[in-house]
Amino acid sequence: MNEILFYSLAALTLGCGLLVVANPFSRNPVTSAMFLVMTILSLAGLFVLLGAFFLAAVQVIVYAGAVIVLFLFVIMLMGSHELPRRAFHWLLAAAACLVTGALAALLLRLLSALKTQPPAVGAPVEGGTALLGRLLFTDYLLPFEVVSVVLLVAMVGVIVLSRKEAA
């Protein structure tokens, strides 16, 4: 059961991810954003399979809820017309495929060179809210506070950036 779920979710993630980047049917950015939502939701499913329940919820709330809505706002703001179909740069595409292929080959080589160890013994950990929260407020207290400052800085920066000129 778990394996069927894993493989179908992984296939869904990869397929939707591909459709975000290169959709042969539509050049509308809204379509890409919707497929990004699908990718994120299936990733949340994978997180659940790996026992990261809190992160799955965060993934749905923060990414599917906030980030995608932000994307859609900006797309609507700029007008959601179809992107112009410009001349396809074969050189650019070839170079991009070359670099990506090289990186993928490197990663695969690294993966096969790794000594595969059996997973650590013990019951699988489950990232519930309570456990993660305890960890956040004990071992990771300083990074947690720094992240909150980063969010504050981002908020102020966004307000400054998106203010109309000569206001």
């Binding site: 790996l50 026992g51 990261a52 809190f54 992160l55 965060v58 993934q59 923060v62 990414y63 906030a66 980030v67 932000l70 994307f71 997973p119 650590a120 013994v121 013990g122 019951a123 699988p124 950990v125 990232g127 456990l131 993660l132 960890l135 956040l136 071992d139 990771y140 990074p143 947690f144 992240v147 980063v150 969010l151 800085v153 981002a154 908020m155």
Partner: peptide, 24 residues
């Protein structure tokens, strides 16, 4: 984090998600 039976990786993902939201 799942295969090492360790929650630290999940905390790291939490931070990555937060910073990614700010960055977006």
């Amino acid at each position: 984090s799942h295969f090492n039976r360790n929650l630290d990786g999940q905390v790291m993902v939490f931070f990555i998600v937060t910073v990614a939201a700010a960055e977006v």
